[in-house]
Design a protein around this nucleic acid. Structure first.
Length: 288
DNA sequence: CCCCAGGTCGTCA
DNA sequence: TGACGACATGGG
């Protein structure tokens, strides 16, 4: 795939500390992959909000956004990358609230990660697929879901596909979804699509709600959504940064570093970001 | 053959 | 409430 010829690029300068590699490598999104089209230090291509995009970076304080105009940046990517959020002060608050050397190390190790603000429905569906599954296979299933039922777009003779809407999926059969190798998750995906497209579950209402327990309760109405999947969707798709997903890696990290428990109330709205630092630290910082 | 993967469900005590 | 096996699939 040769894309370098005629992609327009928008450069964002003087940004607060952001690390493209960590942000797209830390397991929060499934449709971005490393490439090397333009010769930057880090380059990740993917599709979000129905647009093909490449984020690239050579140093701390600027990024290149390929296939993006300045309008796209202000309308979509700035918010997607959480470039309007002051992570410097969040990091300080996390360190203060936990008062833990381990957390301090995790924050410094993961510094530059941004919690992406992804599409809420895509997050719900993707994290349903993620359960009892590994990341390469999660990505594979999501791509086949998109190429089969998403909208096709063309760019520079290459095809890419948007994430399919819940309306489209709600009209499929369980077998249609099962045939994408989703396994026992097929009925969960269908249940989510149906409950949302029927209006039984209102994503807008969840998105704008400040009542976190209400949000958890609503998403838990969907078969196949438990506390972990709901928390991931709320954190990565609904902008609920107080969400604190606990998976196998987080269980290990909490057991090791916080055997007496961690005070989520004290972390408040920074809990989800603290969680992501701990997760990244535990999973990727292989120490003897 | 085994075990595991960014879990949840149904069942049984 | 909490424990426990089942669940589809593919890679190690």
């Amino acid at each position: 795939m040769e894309k370098s010829s005629s992609l327009n690029v928008f450069v964002v300068k003087d940004i607060p500390k952001l690390n493209i590699f960590k942000t797209f490598d830390c397991g929060q999104c499934f449709r971005f992959n490393p490439v090397n089209y333009f010769g930057h230090k880090y380059e990740f291509e993917g599709v979000a909000f129905s647009k093909y995009v490449v984020f690239a970076q050579d140093n701390d304080n600027e990024i290149y956004i390929y296939n993006s105009t300045e309008e796209d940046y202000h309308n979509i990517w700035k918010k997607f990358l959480s470039l309007d959020v002051d992570y410097e002060s969040i990091n300080e608050k996390i360190k203060d609230a936990t008062n833990s050397e381990h957390m301090k190390e995790a924050v410094d190790y993961g510094d530059g990660i941004r919690i992406l603000r992804q599409n809420d429905w895509e997050c719900i569906c993707s994290f349903i697929i993620s359960q009892n599954n590994n990341i390469p296979r999660i990505k594979k299933i999501i791509e086949s879901l998109c190429s089969k039922y998403g909208d096709e777009h063309n760019y520079n003779e290459a095809k890419y596909y948007s994430f399919p809407s819940y309306q489209v999926l709600s009209n499929l059969t369980e077998k249609d979804i099962f045939d994408l190798k989703t396994g026992f998750r097929a009925k969960y995906i269908l249940d989510a699509a149906k409950k949302i497209s029927s209006g039984e579950i209102d994503l807008e209402k969840i998105h704008s709600s400040d009542d976190f327990d209400y949000c958890l309760k609503e998403l838990s109405k969907i078969k196949g959504i438990g506390p972990k999947v709901a928390s991931c969707a709320l954190l990565f798709g609904f902008e609920k940064t107080e969400a604190f997903p606990i998976d196998v890696w987080m269980k290990r990290a909490l057991l090791k570093y916080f055997p007496n428990g961690i005070d989520l109330n004290k972390l408040g709205k920074t809990a989800g970001i603290a969680q992501q630092y701990l997760f990244y630290y535990e999973k990727y910082n292989q120490k003897p």
